[in-house]
């Protein structure tokens, strides 16, 4: 806050109010301006603090409701925390879903698809940013255009394709169609473009081919961008709800969020079960986020720069 006061003082000093005469009047004006700025700043901090709370309270409340009995909730919905604790909601979820299997599936799906995606997207981004070939622009535009296709447009034909390949209810069916993304190619291309050209020249002088340049030079230098993409994609796939449901019709092949969403969507007025389902599906990412916060934020931050 001190810098702001200084700034406003300077500004007032540079362009003195015309009406103000004599030092006394000026000092009052400066003081008034300072107070107004301070009040404004204080108010904006209050607003922003309340906003910050509004971001977290829904999740806290979700946690609370997951452990509250119905009469407890009905008696006082305004309270965040249970008075009468119950494990009924959690038990309802755990009893009905094959938990270990679901967690394994989710990791295989989100992890496998993200790793493959990093490989394929970085290869394409490498070709688009460091190599020259005919149709380069057309390819780039085509890739960006696919970013605009709503999933629901393609879901039925994709389903038919997976059926003909015999990939329904399989890990390859879950993973391979998700192993590339327009956004990933776009972000990595931006990152690669920002690496100096001298890197290429130096390695080419050493006789390195495209593969060496890609694997030994470009990828190691783009680690932050790759890490960002990993986090963004992993989170997106973890949360993906519709895709796993399309590919699998066996609860043992489903992912955790898909199964929990199905579960929650039919819990009706069983508030504890509903919120326990939501909380459990959110928990792994939330824990990862709190532990690796810096990387999450950095990852997303990187996506917009350059």
């Amino acid at each position: 806050m001190s810098t702001e006061t200084v700034t406003s003082l300077r500004a007032t000093g540079a362009r003195p109010p015309r009406r103000a005469r004599g030092t006394g009047g000026r000092a009052t004006a400066v003081r008034a301006a300072g107070a107004a700025t301070r009040a404004g700043a204080a108010l904006s901090w209050v607003v922003i603090g309340v906003g910050g709370l509004a971001m977290l309270v829904p999740f806290l409340w979700m946690l609370g409701v997951a452990f509250r009995t119905s009469p407890d909730l009905y008696a006082d919905p305004a309270r965040l925390w249970p008075v009468h604790w119950t494990l009924h909601g959690v038990r309802a979820v755990v009893d009905q879903l094959p938990f270990g299997q679901l967690i394994l599936n989710t990791f295989v799906f989100a992890g496998g698809a993200t790793l493959l995606l990093l490989l394929f997207d970085s290869m394409t981004a490498f070709a688009l940013s460091r190599l020259r070939f005919r149709g380069q622009n057309a390819v780039f535009v085509l890739i960006l255009a696919t970013l605009m296709v709503p999933f629901q447009v393609t879901v039925v034909p994709v389903f038919l394709t997976l059926f003909h390949l015999g990939w329904l209810n399989s890990y390859q069916g879950l993973i391979i169609p998700r192993a590339t993304s327009a956004l990933g190619i776009f972000l990595l291309r931006q990152a690669f473009l920002s690496l100096p050209r001298e890197l290429d020249d130096a390695s080419r002088i050493d006789g390195a081919g495209n593969l060496t340049l890609y694997w030994r030079i470009i990828l190691p230098n783009a680690k932050p961008a790759l890490a960002s993409l990993f986090i963004i994609q992993f989170a997106a796939l973890w949360n993906d709800f519709l895709w796993p449901l399309v590919v699998t019709n066996d609860v043992h092949m489903q992912t955790l969020p898909a199964a929990l969403t199905l579960f929650s969507s039919q819990s009706g007025v069983d508030h504890a079960a509903l919120m326990a389902g939501a909380a459990i599906s959110l928990a792994p990412l939330a824990i990862a986020f709190i532990a690796l916060q810096r990387y999450f934020v950095q990852g997303v931050a990187n996506s917009g720069i350059k």
Binding site: M123, T124, L131, T146, V153, P157, T161, G209, N210
Partner: peptide, 22 residues
């Protein structure tokens, strides 16, 4: 041009799972 090999995996996936379905 080996650039085509680099873009091939992504393009095949996009062709099969996005372009053709559209």
């Amino acid at each position: 041009n080996s650039a085509y090999l680099f873009i091939a995996p992504s393009l095949v996936l996009i062709a099969v799972f996005i372009a053709e379905p559209i």
